[in-house]
């Protein structure tokens, strides 16, 4: 399984890489939405995009809007991973084409469970 982690915080990206690695999942990183679209065009298909909301250059909502409109990898699942928890904002993200929503801060187990909800089979991080 391949995951694209999109977050402007290098600390979060490093944490995600570590966490996904413990689940046996490999990942690529992008620092904003624009960067993510470039990686999608050049690095082939991903199973899942973990997408932050508030980022410079291109935020998560714009990124998903462009991506879904251009039909770039329509099979790829998109999970918003953000500190935002506003009802209307979550609805907007879902309307734009997000599949799930994970609120920061989160535990390794909550990330795993959200991935399972999306039909992605992953090991428990603590078992590795």
């Amino acid at each position: 399984m391949k995951v694209l982690v999109v977050d402007d915080s290098s600390f979060i990206r490093e944490y995600m890489r570590h966490l996904l690695g413990r689940m046996g999942v490999s990942c690529e990183e992008a620092a904003d939405g624009s960067d993510a679209l470039e990686i999608l065009k050049t690095h082939g298909d991903f199973d899942l995009m973990l997408l932050d909301l508030n980022m410079p250059v291109m935020n998560g909502l714009e990124c998903i809007k462009v991506m879904r409109r251009s039909k770039l990898y329509p099979e790829m699942k998109v999970m918003m991973v953000t500190t935002e928890a506003d009802h209307s904002l979550i609805l907007r993200a879902l309307d734009q084409g997000a599949d799930e929503f994970l609120m920061k801060p989160f535990t390794p187990e909550s990330l795993r469970q959200k991935m399972v909800l999306l039909g992605l089979s992953v090991c428990s991080p603590q078992l590795i």
Partner: peptide, 20 residues
């Protein structure tokens, strides 16, 4: 709490059946 609704609950059900 946030960690509890983060765990196992699909976001669409969170929006439909819970109020923040």
């Amino acid at each position: 709490s946030r960690p509890e609704v983060n765990c196992g609950l699909p976001v669409r059900m969170l929006l439909r059946y819970m109020t923040r």
